Amino acid sequence: MGLIVGVALLLVSVGTIGAAWAISARYEKNIKRADLLGDVPTTQRTDGTGSSYDPGDDIVGPLNFLVLGSDSRLADPSVQANTVGERSDTMMLVHVTADLGSAYVVSIPRDAYVDIPAGGTWQGGKNKINAAFSYGGAPLAAKAVYDLTGLPLDGAVVVDFNGVRTMVNAVGGVRVCTTYTVRSIHTNRVWRAGCNHMGGDSALDFMRQRYSVPGSDFGRIHNQQIVLKALLDKAVSGGTLTNPLRFDSFLRAATSAITVDDSMDVEGLAFALRGLRPGDLTFETLPYSSESLWTPYGTAVQVDEEATAAMFAAINADRLPEWKASRQAAPTSLIGGDPAVVPSPSIAD
């Protein structure tokens, strides 16, 4: 699951210097490392702090991170699976603004039909974007996202999908509110429209639902986002911060669930992003056409290329709110054909 936005956004959204030190001194050893970005460009700096983000530098914005998640994470996410078919169930692009004071989290539908550059066993060409992880591991997925968005990447995180269970349990469960009833096709659990308290097993089950929610994959993206919001809210609540055992369990669960790119300075990011709060995150979904797209690889999501280019240009300029406001009068991106059913939520909602 994309439950660690850039890594420090979740780990240190508690906003304390002590937490940043704790990650370095006690928890950072839990974090696995691998080459996740390959040769994807990093952000070029023009403010005298260096040509790119490197470990040991003073960290300045803007920053872009790729977050990938899968039900069965590879032992080494930097390489492809032994058997073609291992795909990333969740893909997010996280942009931290130049002042490090807010972040935009863009969910990329796993079935978005895009150009995937050659890499691994893939010869290059159009395919569903989650196929990139299958054929060339995280580095090929990173290249595909870079080509799609035009944004350089300063780090990457692969998250163990099952880690959500431990994180939710570590904070004592989460309160998730939904506008529609969902029935699990796996366990027959039912989450009624309204607010539901979820333990780890229930939250993980809820986020896996695809066929029993409005909008299929887009409904699942929405559910993942609202669980993330609930988890972030609970992680920064007084009940977690003032309970040393709960806080320790949460940090151990979070750090054990992730693999980060070799270049990521986790301690530095934790300190630099210590002021971010859940209300400083805005969630979006990649613009797409509401019409189904038939491809040699099955039904796929047709990306709205014009709107996508405009969105990421706005993100690169730290002007996503203005871009969103300009689209409200004539939205082109619908989820499940009805934006009132499954909206693209802001974490501040």
Rank of each mutant, 00 (worst) to 15 (best):
G172I: 13
M92F: 02
H186I: 12
M91G: 00
V106L: 02
G120T: 05
A138S: 15
G150Q: 13
A132Y: 04
V174N: 11
Y104M: 01
V145C: 14
F133H: 12
M92L: 13
L93G: 02
S184H: 14
A142G: 08
L153M: 15
K128E: 03
P117N: 12
N162E: 15
L93F: 05
T121A: 07
G163V: 07
T179F: 00
Y180Q: 08
G194W: 08
V94L: 05
P109V: 09
S107N: 08
W191C: 12
P109L: 07
T181S: 05
V174S: 11
M92P: 00
H95D: 02
R183H: 04
A132G: 03
G194N: 11
Y113T: 06
W122Q: 06
T187R: 10
S102N: 06
D99C: 04
P152Y: 07
G101Q: 14
V158N: 03
Y146T: 12
I116Y: 04
V164P: 08
G120E: 08
S102R: 13
G125I: 12
W191F: 15
I116K: 01
T90R: 03
T181V: 04
Y104R: 06
Y135D: 10
I116V: 15
P152Q: 09
R110E: 03
G119Q: 07
V105L: 13
A118M: 07
W122N: 07
T179W: 00
V157A: 10
T149L: 01
Y135P: 00
R189I: 03
A98V: 02
L148D: 05
V106R: 01
T179M: 09
V158I: 14
A118E: 14
V176L: 12
A138I: 05
V190F: 10
H186A: 15
